[in-house]
């Protein structure tokens, strides 16, 4: 289904550009209510971007909780984002330099020293010399979460913002006005060994799309702007509430 949708969108966009007939685009991409047909496609919105050339898919899984909701002690009602959750998905990408670059043996040794089996991918989030030696993008996670209503989505965004701020991430100016929440921070001490993280949350009706870019010290909003803009464009066009 995702591939069919991608092909269809690409074909329609090409026609629209070729004949300048925006009416065609509007007719096919007519507004519709959020439905199951919209769910599960958004995690692919970054694919095909040159910035991710050579990146491997590290994780691709359904996310029943949408947002992690660690908090249901006896007698307490669920948070709105949990009670209203419909469906979600997370898809993660990792740089080839982290998978097979010169720092991989050291990463394997560090993982083995803690008792972890050595698999196709290193332990993530990446920590150590691989971060120090590679100042650009190393990991990207695309999370999509759909709720029954905007109440659930707003609750999810509030939880996200509170958690990011609590972790020391700074709310930053959004590079695109369609972004509801933009933060930047370091995933641990600012020692050059822990990844920098940029988070972007976009709302579209009751569906949220979160892009989490992780990498070295040079990672910036400018660095990933083309990926963010293209992803938001596809997210906005693909399923308009």
């Amino acid at each position: 289904m995702p591939h069919r949708r991608t092909v269809a969108v690409a074909a329609i966009a090409a026609i629209a550009v070729a004949v300048g007939a925006s009416a065609i685009y509007a007719a096919v991409m007519s507004p519709r209510s959020p439905s199951a047909a919209c769910i599960g496609d958004y995690q692919h919105v970054v694919e095909g971007n040159d910035a991710l050339k050579g990146f491997a898919v590290l994780v691709d899984e359904e996310l029943p909780a949408g947002a992690v909701d660690r908090g249901h002690v006896p007698g307490q009602p669920p948070q709105a984002y949990s009670g209203e959750f419909v469906s979600g998905h997370v898809r993660g990408y990792i740089s080839p330099i982290a998978v097979s670059g010169p720092d991989r043996p050291a990463m394997n040794a560090a993982a083995a020293s803690l008792g972890y089996p050595i698999g196709s991918f290193p332990l993530v989030p990446l920590v150590g010399p691989v971060v120090q030696h590679n100042p650009g993008l190393l990991e990207l996670y695309v999370t999509e979460a759909t709720f029954k209503s905007t109440t659930g989505l707003e609750s999810w965004l509030a939880m996200k913002k509170a958690s990011f701020v609590d972790a020391g991430y700074a709310v930053s100016p959004a590079p695109d006005p369609r972004i509801a929440l933009s933060t930047t921070g370091v995933m641990g001490p600012s020692d050059g060994l822990h990844e920098k993280i940029l988070t972007f949350d976009v709302a579209n009706g009751p569906t949220a799309l979160e892009l989490d870019f992780q990498g070295g010290t040079d990672l910036s909003a400018d660095h990933v702007a083309s990926v963010v803009t293209a992803a938001i464009d596809r997210f906005a066009n693909d399923c308009t509430p």
């Binding site: 992690v68 991918f121 993530v124 996200k160 990011f164 609590d166």
Partner: peptide, 9 residues
């Protein structure tokens, strides 16, 4: 899945 760490293995 996590919140301030999107995902870990």
């Amino acid at each position: 899945a996590g919140v301030t760490v999107p995902w870990t293995n």
